[in-house]
């Protein structure tokens, strides 16, 4: 294990981090958001987001990665709503991962719902960065090349949705 460093496959790419339902714990989401930023990503932290709002955010921001965080036990129902909304909107080129207090048996169910990977309690940041890098690279062929985005502050983007 080591401290996350800039990862070429992630550098300059956009990630959205969101909290599910009403779960109140931000520590894990913010720590992982920091790690993704240190790995070179442009991270938009949305906070609590309903599935429909998350779809709108993904359509506008076109991230390569969406990270969903929850520690309250609501993961099965919430991820089901998010993945259903993503499928309905045709968002199949974005990598979706989930993390938090998620027991192993539920991790299997989340993958069945369409979540690409689940990071349970104790997942090292280096492992998370390595895995999302591989997932983003593998999903690359589905993405339509986009024009270079306008630079902006993450904060101004967040406010658009809230």
């Amino acid at each position: 294990m080591g401290v996350p460093a800039v990862v070429a496959a992630l550098q300059g790419r956009k990630a959205i981090v969101a909290k599910l339902g009403m779960d109140a714990h931000w520590r894990g989401a913010i720590v992982v958001a920091n790690a993704l930023r240190d790995a070179g990503m442009d991270v938009v932290y949305l906070g609590h987001t309903l599935a429909a709002d998350l779809v709108a955010a993904v359509e506008q921001e076109d991230p390569v990665l969406v990270g969903l965080s929850t520690l309250s036990g609501n993961h099965l129902a919430e991820c089901d709503q998010v993945m259903t909304a993503f499928r309905a909107a045709g968002l199949d080129d974005v990598v979706v991962v989930a993390g938090g207090t998620i027991p192993p048996r539920d991790q299997v169910e989340l993958v069945a719902l369409g979540v690409d990977q689940v990071f349970g309690v104790g997942s090292p940041l280096a492992h998370i960065v390595e895995q999302v890098s591989a997932l983003v690279t593998a999903r690359q062929h589905l993405r339509v090349p986009a024009e270079a985005p306008e630079p902006h502050s993450a904060r101004s983007v967040v406010l658009d949705y809230l």
Binding site: G21, M22, D23, A24, H48, L50, S72, G73, N74, E78
Partner: peptide, 22 residues
Amino acid sequence: DYPSLRAFDSDEPRAGTDVGRG
């Protein structure tokens, strides 16, 4: 639970998945 801590009713749309959890 989180909706109760935050003064949301259990039948609020965003509360449903957290009712009685935590």
